[in-house]
């Protein structure tokens, strides 16, 4: 088999000890990086070197490394999850870079997503939003037979597309207003599109209120979220959320 190509990069990485630390950039040389490596594997290599030099490795969250758990993520040259659309940082491969590139790596930033260390951020605000209504209330054991309620395929598919959200917060990170509208609307859409989820009307209001309370911004329809979303979730969901919101507020 042909030899894999290797490249050398200059990394400019955000280092921050803890939430209180001001943080700063640190420059690292990434030498002879195999282009078949994933971006996180490239960071592994840097971290190995740092460790062997008794320096603290770069902290970053990651787990599944196949784009589904939503743990990973960083701004790469100013773009959430890096230059390839429709993938997470762990799915980004080094063949997307050129020899000699400088790569700026920053954590996802927003007031409501404070940095914990280096590239690790606190996304618990998302959990608190879900807790306010991101579910269908059905007690274990009380469900009717699954095929009793047919669901129009188009709706079921749209619901699935919205449910594909991995909660990585790239939408917030990319938004000029640090709004969580895409995240919230994806959950609202997933559930409201299904007959099972239709009954809980207050969901949308409670979730939006919690989003505001957490300190996320409002939506200015700039659609940066849609462009950043690794699961290509559409702003159509935000329109649906707005619609559901009006319906609920005006009916009462």
């Amino acid at each position: 088999m042909a030899e894999d190509k290797t490249i050398t990069l200059t990394l400019k990485v955000w280092r921050q000890k803890n939430a209180e630390d001001k943080g700063h950039f640190e420059i690292y040389k990434a030498k002879d990086i195999n282009e078949n490596m994933s971006f996180l594997e490239m960071l592994d290599v840097i971290n190995d070197t740092l460790t062997l030099n008794n320096q603290t490795p770069i902290a970053f969250d990651h787990d599944c490394r196949e784009g589904i758990c939503g743990s990973c993520g960083a701004m790469v040259n100013g773009v959430a999850h890096g230059p390839v659309s429709g993938v997470t940082l762990c799915q980004l491969h080094m063949r997307s870079f050129n020899d000699g590139d400088t790569v700026v790596i920053e954590p996802f930033r927003a007031k409501s997503l404070p940095v914990i260390q280096d590239l690790v951020i606190d996304r618990t605000a998302f959990d608190r939003i879900i807790a306010k209504g991101g579910y269908i209330s059905v007690k274990t054991g009380s469900a009717p037979e699954a095929n009793d309620t047919p669901i129009e395929k188009k709706k079921a598919d749209a619901s699935f597309d919205a449910a594909a959200c991995i909660g990585c917060s790239a939408c917030v990170a990319a938004c000029p207003n640090a709004s969580a509208s895409l995240f919230v609307s994806a959950k609202v859409s997933h559930l409201v599109l299904l007959p099972q989820g239709h009954a809980e009307k207050k969901r949308v209001v409670q979730m939006v209120d919690q989003m505001d309370k957490e300190g996320f911004g409002g939506c200015s329809n700039a659609y940066q979220c849609q462009a950043a979303c690794p699961k290509e979730i559409k702003v159509e969901n935000i329109a649906r959320m707005n619609r559901e919101y009006i319906k609920e507020k005006s009916i009462r």
């Binding site: 579910y135 059905v138 054991g141 009380s142 469900a143 129009e152 099972q196």
Partner: peptide, 22 residues
């Protein structure tokens, strides 16, 4: 059998056929 019933009730968007059934 009960798991599928429960998950569908929870809103798990399982694949469906054109007729709307699982």
């Amino acid at each position: 059998v009960k798991i599928i019933d429960h998950c569908v009730a929870q809103g798990v968007p399982f694949a469906r056929e054109y007729g709307g059934l699982l």
